[in-house]
Amino acid sequence: MASVLVRGAIVSDPLADKVLVAPRSGRASGPRAGATDALTRRINADPEGVEQGLAQLVLTIVELLRQLMERQALHRIDAGGLDDAQIERLGTTLYLLEQRMQELKDAFGLEDKDLNLDLGPLGRLM
């Protein structure tokens, strides 16, 4: 296991020996992967960043509504309440909405995790 010298004392590398169960594929990763969440989730209130902060807030709400609409559409299809033409139109609309969201996120330099919302017992939006 890896060790490092810190101020004369040998301390163990906190990143070593963290894998409890290795995946069949790829590398394991822990909560550190989101280590910069605290920075990116904060709404930027600087004068220069206020536009982006506002975009983040608005797009988060739009994304929440988009996901709710999508789930509602899927429930209605499952329930058999829509004909083929309606399903096609709904699917196209939701697809285009998703594309447009992607364009807006790109335009404001935002990623999915920036639009996250903690919905308590429902988990997180993203």
Binding site: L20, R24, S29, E70, L74, I77, G91, T92, L94, Y95
Partner: peptide
């Protein structure tokens, strides 16, 4: 804290980028 990540071995075809077929989009989301 213990962290767990789940993947399914069965590969799912990602929807094609140019796929504007409404029903196919909804099916892949489902």
């Amino acid at each position: 804290e213990v962290s767990v990540r789940v993947r399914w071995e069965t590969a799912v075809d990602p929807p094609a980028a140019a796929d504007t077929d409404g029903r196919r989009y909804l099916e892949s989301r489902a």
